[in-house]
């Protein structure tokens, strides 16, 4: 899941970036409102982690602009102003959740998963399809009573596919979800991960649509 981090403090931004990567997200980092607007315009993010006070303006203004444009992207506010009034202000401006600084990395990722889940309209934290139950918080799955472990990238691919089962997901989009801007993409990376996933889930679980991308197969009868 690609997550945009808008934070100007070097130590915290790096911490969030490294920490969320370790928790299975694909974070992108920007340090000011202007860069954030540019990144959001390009799209492809599952959520935004937004600091309130930024060098070129308030995160609330950025958020208001986003919502005014009709964007329903889940936003997690990071705020040092953890008085009730400020939290209300943040939520009313269109944030989906907030966290007061300093916070726990585990809580950041749990809240991110929760607001992404809500945005996708799911009630359960688990993603299910065709006998596979996927637990995003643990990057693990279960199929026919078997416990399955996935690498971070394998899980990213599988997540992208299971969010819209049966629908074709382009290879480009999968690459985008897999890698941040800073990371180089090997041309056959997606194929390699799909191959590994098929070994774990069975050959027929993921279908290749030649020249376009991949999709999850319809449930077995």
């Amino acid at each position: 899941m690609r997550v945009l981090i808008v934070e100007d403090d070097e130590t915290l931004a790096d911490g969030l970036s490294v920490g969320l990567r370790l928790q299975g997200f694909t974070p992108e980092l920007v340090t000011c409102c202007a860069d954030a607007r540019e990144a959001l315009a390009q799209g492809g993010f599952s959520a935004v982690v937004l600091d309130l006070m930024l060098p070129d303006g308030s995160g609330l203004d950025l958020l208001a602009g986003l919502r005014a444009g009709g964007d329903r992207l889940p936003v997690l506010l990071l705020t040092a102003l953890d008085q009730v009034r400020d939290r209300i202000g943040g939520l009313d401006a269109g944030a989906d959740d907030y966290l007061g600084k300093p916070f726990d990395l585990g809580e950041v990722s749990a809240r991110l998963r929760a607001i992404i889940r809500r945005a996708e309209g799911r009630a359960s934290a688990l993603l299910e399809w065709n006998g596979l139950r996927l637990d995003p918080s643990r990057m693990s799955g279960e199929m026919d009573g078997r416990e399955l472990r996935f690498s971070r990238r394998e899980f990213s691919v599988l997540r992208a596919l299971i969010e819209t089962p049966g629908v074709i997901v382009e290879k480009d989009r999968l690459e985008e979800r897999l890698y941040g801007w800073q990371e180089g993409v090997e041309s056959n990376a997606v194929e390699v991960h799909v191959h590994k996933l098929r070994a774990k889930l069975g050959a027929g679980f993921i279908e290749t649509v030649r020249g376009v991308g991949y999709r999850l197969a319809e449930p077995r009868p």
Partner: peptide
């Protein structure tokens, strides 16, 4: 508060990492 809590949040996050 913001200016003090932000680096503290950074330190805590880095410690967890």
């Amino acid at each position: 508060a913001h200016e003090l809590k932000t680096p503290l949040a950074g330190i805590k996050t880095q410690a967890q990492i």
